[in-house]
């Protein structure tokens, strides 16, 4: 379970405050969507949860299963179960995708005091997960995300999510840059990972993604806080009426 209480955040080197007392709870097994206009702080929220250093938390706390993660570095948060699917996954030239996947899986296992994966088990796990997402073997041999299309990068994010088996998944604008077929593959991948022990926070501009990943709850974010919470029908309402009413309300 993810609980965010009164989170106030500014950009580290600037006086610009982005999150202004944000409260949010995502229960195990719940798929929560956050919608909001550009500049409302959605991506900042995802980065702050994952532990990016460019921000300064002025107040509040982020609890994962009751434990405050704000003191942890990004790698420790990952090992604790937080996974951020990036809006723009980074290209890492020179690092083979397989090398990276193995390093990530084993680093998390080590951090949790588990034994490292044996190579045959690792390869089996990757191949199984890659098949489901339609990821070709050739892609796994290439340097991580280098020269991948937008759709391939997003599929690679979901592959990582499947392999690392986090308890709290944050999807930052996962639908951006995807055509409808790629969107369906990615959504199917996410839906396959839905589990009573796993929470999802799906950040998006558009209703479109939520046709494929049906949320349990929908939150509207504006000017750095949650201004309305409802069921999945709220997303449809927003699609019709736009965000204007909420921007004013905030």
């Amino acid at each position: 379970m993810l609980e965010i209480r009164n989170l106030v955040v500014k950009i580290a080197d600037e006086d610009k405050q982005i999150l202004n007392g944000l409260n949010l709870t995502v229960n195990d097994g719940e798929v929560a969507a956050i919608m909001g206009p550009n500049g409302s702080g959605k991506s900042t929220l995802s980065y702050v949860i994952a532990g990016k250093e460019d921000y300064e938390v002025l107040d509040g706390e982020i609890l994962l299963n009751g434990e405050n993660v704000l003191e942890m570095e990004a790698d420790a948060r990952a090992a604790a179960g937080i996974f951020l699917a990036f809006q723009y996954p980074l290209e890492i030239p020179g690092v083979a995708t397989m090398t990276f996947l193995k390093a990530a899986m084993n680093a998390q296992r080590r951090a949790r005091g588990e034994a490292e994966l044996l190579t045959p088990d690792f390869i089996k796990a990757v191949n199984g997960a890659a098949d489901k997402l339609g990821i070709a073997k050739d892609m796994l041999r290439r340097p991580l995300n280098v020269g991948f299309s937008g759709g391939e990068k997003k599929r690679m994010e979901i592959l990582q999510m499947a392999l690392l088996a986090p308890s709290m998944c944050i999807l930052d604008e996962t639908d951006s840059g995807l055509d409808i077929d790629a969107l369906r593959i990615v959504a199917d991948g996410v839906n396959a990972l839905r589990d009573k022990n796993r929470g999802f926070l799906v950040i998006t501009h558009y209703q479109r993604l939520l046709d494929h990943i049906i949320p349990d709850t929908v939150h509207v974010m504006s000017q750095g806080r949650i201004v309305k919470t409802g069921g999945k029908e709220l997303a449809l309402e927003l699609e019709k009426s736009g965000y204007a009413a909420y921007v004013e309300a905030a």
Binding site: G51, K52, F83, L84, F86, G94, F100, A103, A107, A111
Partner: peptide, 29 residues
Amino acid sequence: DGEQLFYLMARGLPRPQAEALVLLAFAGE
């Protein structure tokens, strides 16, 4: 590159290991 580093750390690689991976790739070119 801090962005690359954050990406790798967000996948669970401790900072020194993430740095080593980025540096190895840089030299490897």
